[in-house]
Write a protein that binds this DNA or RNA. Structure first.
Length: 422
RNA sequence: GUGGGUGUAGCUCAGCUGGCAGAGCACUGGGUUGUGAUCCCAGGUGUCGCGGGUUCAAGUCCCGUCACUCACCCCA
């Protein structure tokens, strides 16, 4: 642990930093699957009016009530670093009238989100997500598409140890009655003060309690899936049918609860065992009331958010190599200043030709330069010394087997091209 | 917000019941006056997290404090 910062500065608490290609490889793989299904990139603000989240996500949620980074800007407006993506997307769709074109509006986003929590394995204050939203059409096939896109992303990374859990939270026609019934059930149980309070504010969340003594008492609890409206039940059956058609495996989990208030009908979570005490690598669902709640037309929507940090953790847990360590393909090794001057130009030419290339800078010795070439992961080294310069040649060395061929200095770029092409 | 664990070299860590601060990796140079990944030799760094206390003597024991970390909670 680097607790003694050399310069006195450290990254803010709970924020992971990534060096190297792995993080972007995971993120880009997930994004690619969204592109493949026709979701357009949407670049969103990283902070919004605090009221957007209070209204959209729900005052009673933990996210809003105690995890937001909220502050006043210089104009006295109260803003909040975005804790999730859906509210911002919906706001943008309404603001720009995107719902007036062809429906559904299919959008994807990526980037950092912020929640003020105690950090631990797989839980960060700045977390990275890739998400998609499909707004404006209440079609169970769209729910299935969203799930299939997420599933395809995980598969493309080579993940096999995850599971999709799914249920339905019903709709506004039957949820209030169910909620009241659940509350009556919970009132009779022997629960601690915090849990009783939660039962009062958001009884659904009590169902998700992990403590054995609570779980036991919940055994006979009424479940939402048994109280669905005819329409919601039909929708749910159709979604599961499409998932079968799409070859997406799932497990029904009627106990599942989400932390955000806007979900209706289809609700899901992708879980993975390799994340420490966290389990979700992605989650989402349908939100049929959110557009109207935020002042837009009464259109439905469905989407997911995938945690890139956690997905990377899952890849590590499964021992997957998510990105090649090879930084460059060719490495220039100069002996002396004249050779270095010449290689600077050659490396530039290689890069212009689309070949990843690097050079031993700083006038280190031959041995050190060769070592740098080795560490770079390059397949070839271009070794150039005084004798070569005099003869108008350069040594092209294959670092995997140590073989070396002499090529004309003028034809160095072409020779590298040929070597890499073979 | 509530608990537990850990702070020693750039990194990963060892250092027993107090007695001269160590190893591996990495880095640099040499063995090879022009060849890496292997091998051999050499080289350097430490406010032992910080502050106090006990002691002839503290990395080691005690108190405090900060940081990191894991877990509860919650979620991506």
């Amino acid at each position: 642990m680097a607790e003694i910062p050399q310069g006195g500065f450290t990254a803010p608490k709970g924020i992971p930093e990534y060096v190297g290609p792995e993080f972007t490889a995971v993120r880009d793989t997930l994004v690619r699957e969204a592109d493949r299904a026709g979701y357009a990139h949407l670049e969103l603000p990283v902070f919004e009016d605090t009221a957007l989240y209070a209204r959209g996500v729900g005052e009673s949620t933990d996210v809003v009530s105690k995890e937001m980074y909220t502050f006043a800007d210089r104009g006295g407006r109260t803003v909040t670093l975005r804790p999730e993506g859906t509210a911002g997307v919906v706001r943008s769709v309404i603001e720009h009238g995107m719902d007036r074109g062809t429906l559904p509006v299919k959008l994807r986003y990526q980037g950092p989100f912020f929640r003020y929590e105690r950090p631990q394995a797989g839980r960060y204050r700045q977390l990275q997500q890739v998400g998609i939203e499909a707004i404006g059409v209440d079609d169970p096939a769209l729910d299935a598409e969203v799930l299939a896109v997420a599933d395809a992303g995980f598969r493309a990374l080579g993940l096999t140890g995850y599971r999709l859990e799914i249920t339905s939270l019903g709709d506004a026609t039957t949820r209030p009655a169910y909620r009241a019934e659940l509350q009556r059930f919970l009132e009779k149980l022997d629960l601690d003060e915090d849990t009783r309070e939660r039962a009062r504010i958001n009884p659904l969340r009590v169902l998700d309690d992990k403590r054995p003594e609570v779980r036991e008492q919940l055994a006979g609890a009424p479940l939402m899936v048994d109280h669905l409206s005819d329409e919601a039940a039909a929708h749910h059956r159709k979604v599961l049918g499409y998932l079968d058609d799409l070859g997406v495996a799932y497990t029904e989990n009627p106990w599942m609860v989400r932390g955000l208030d806007y979900y209706t009908k289809t609700t899901f979570e992708f879980v993975h065992p390799g994340l420490g005490s966290q389990s979700g690598i992605g989650g989402g669902g349908r939100y049929d009331g959110l557009m109207a709640e935020l002042g837009g037309p009464a259109l439905s929507g469905v989407g997911f958010g995938i945690g890139v940090d956690r997905t990377l953790m899952a890849c590590h847990a499964e021992g997957l190599e998510v990105a090649p360590a090879r930084r460059v393909e060719v490495f220039g090794v100069p002996l002396g200043e004249a050779a270095r001057d010449r290689l600077v130009g050659i490396v530039g030419q290689l890069r212009r030709g689309g070949i990843r290339a690097d050079l031993a800078y700083g006038g280190r010795g031959l041995k050190g330069a060769m070592k740098a070439a080795d560490r770079s992961g390059a397949r070839y080294a271009l070794v150039l010394g005084e004798r070569d310069l005099d003869g108008g040649v350069v040594q092209l060395k294959d670092l995997s087997d140590g073989s070396q061929t002499e090529v004309p200095l003028d034809g160095a770029v072409a020779a590298v091209d040929r070597a890499l092409g073979s």
